Amino acid sequence: MTNGTMPRILRRSICAATIAATMTISVAANAHGIWFAQRAKQLALIYGVGADDLDMVRRLPQVESIAAYDAEYRPINSAARIAGAIVLIDSDAQPTLVAAVMPYGVWSRVGNGDFEKKTLLEMPNATFSTRNVKYAVTIQGPLSKPIPALAGHTLQVVPVGDIPATLGTPMTYRVLYNGAPLAGARVINDLVNDPDAKPLLSAADGTVTLPVRNQGLNVVLAVYDGPSDNPKLYGQVEHSATLAFTLPHLPE
Rank of each mutant, 00 (worst) to 15 (best):
N3H: 05
G4C: 00
I9E: 15
I14D: 03
T24P: 07
S26R: 11
V27F: 03
V27E: 14
A29L: 01
N30K: 13
R39T: 11
A40E: 15
K41G: 11
Q42S: 15
A44D: 13
G48F: 08
G50E: 02
L54N: 12
D55Y: 10
M56N: 06
L60T: 07
Q62H: 10
Q62N: 13
V63P: 08
V63M: 12
V63S: 03
S65E: 12
A68W: 00
D70K: 06
E72S: 15
Y73M: 09
S78K: 03
S78M: 05
R81H: 08
V87Q: 03
L88H: 11
L88S: 04
D90F: 00
P95S: 08
T96V: 15
M102N: 05
P103T: 07
Y104E: 12
S108D: 10
G113S: 10
D114I: 04
D114P: 01
E116I: 03
L121E: 15
P124H: 09
S129H: 06
K134I: 04
A149K: 04
L155F: 09
D162L: 12
L167N: 11
L167V: 06
N178I: 00
G179H: 08
A180P: 00
L182C: 09
L191M: 13
N193F: 06
T209V: 03
L210C: 01
Q215P: 02
A222C: 06
D229V: 07
D229M: 03
N230G: 10
Q236K: 14
A241P: 04
L247R: 10
